[in-house]
Design a binder for these strands. Structure first.
Length: 295
DNA sequence: ACACGGACCTGAAGGC
DNA sequence: TGCCTTCAGGTCCGTG
């Protein structure tokens, strides 16, 4: 499910139900997800109040009242469900309600808050994980120390990309997938950003910089494309949350459309372009692109 | 230092 | 119907 826009959508949904609330009960139903849970995980969370809920790259960061941070990564299939006490069902997470109909065997963590709300972490593939770290240790932790810039922050600029790309032999797709360069992009939004920037995923990353190391126009286009594709996806409530429902329980109809991702064999959506979207594999991941307008 | 493949794990979808 | 293969939004680790 989650790339940056999806994680941000989850953050916005959880923030109003979580922040300011005290955790009164934690049910940890298995010893590990991707990694083992921290020692005495449930006991340590219990009694603490959530001060804030932030995000760094694809990580959710819940700051707790005692100076520790609950770090949560959703992996490929992690998601949260919120249910009010006695409601008998899910309750809106922001604009959305998450489907709770899936197999309860994959409900790995259930957190109960002091107002009776329960937050359930569900993750069939268990690539997600949770950690408890002292706030002061966050920046230096191996998970965060090497992360690149936030794509929606000021630090992402054509000059930054050019500096990182200079001398790189990797292609653009791999370059953008690398969390050490830009943190939070994943397979879908890399494909979509390259399409918007009209850049081939196979082009050398080094072509974002001139021989002197100055950013090229391509770098400028790419920065704009990355920002706009993420902003649009966040505005749509996380385009890849396919199983969301409207607040009234009806199926959503406004699912965000991708321009290239998942559209192999279909016509390119650029007006006037007669290209056909192709699928190829780079570093083991599917790449979707229009060979005609992406150069 | 970097690039690549495989590994982790489950479920859905498609082919036969 | 059912079995088999392929694929999926992420990242870590080992090997060249």
């Amino acid at each position: 499910m989650p790339e940056l826009p999806e994680v941000e959508t989850v953050r916005r949904g959880l923030e109003p139900v979580l922040v300011g609330r005290r955790i009164v009960r934690v049910e940890q139903r298995r010893p590990d997800l991707r990694f083992a849970f921290p020692e005495r995980f449930a006991a340590r969370l219990k009694g603490r109040t959530v001060i804030s809920l932030g995000r760094r790259a694809k990580y959710l960061l819940a700051r707790l009242s005692d100076g520790e941070v609950l770090v949560m990564h959703l992996g490929m299939s992690g998601r949260f469900t919120v249910a009010a006490l006695g409601s008998g069902g899910p309750r809106p997470l922001g604009e959305l309600v998450y489907d709770t109909g899936s197999d309860p065997a994959h409900n790995h963590v259930v957190i109960t808050l002091d107002d009776g709300t329960t937050i359930t972490y569900h993750d069939p593939r268990r690539f997600g994980y949770m950690l408890l770290l002292p706030e002061a240790a966050l920046d230096g932790h191996p998970l965060f120390a090497g992360l690149g810039v936030e794509p929606l922050g000021n630090a992402l600029s054509p000059a930054y990309l050019a500096a990182k790309a200079r001398g790189r032999r990797a292609d653009l797709k791999a370059f953008l997938m690398d969390q050490r360069i830009v943190a939070g992009l994943g397979n879908i939004y890399v494909c979509e950003a390259l399409y918007r920037a009209r850049l081939s995923p196979f082009r050398a990353a080094a072509s974002l910089a001139t021989a002197a190391g100055k950013p090229t126009r391509r770098a400028e286009r790419l920065v704009e494309a990355i920002r706009s594709v993420l902003r649009d996806a966040i505005a749509a409530g996380g385009s890849t949350l396919r199983d969301y429902r409207q607040v009234d329980g009806s199926r959503g109809s406004s699912q965000h459309a991708f321009f290239v991702y998942g559209r192999e064999g279909e016509p390119c959506l650029t007006p006037g372009c007669r290209g056909i979207v192709q699928r190829s594999v780079q570093a083991g991941r599917s790449t979707f692109y229009c060979p005609r307008c992406q150069r």
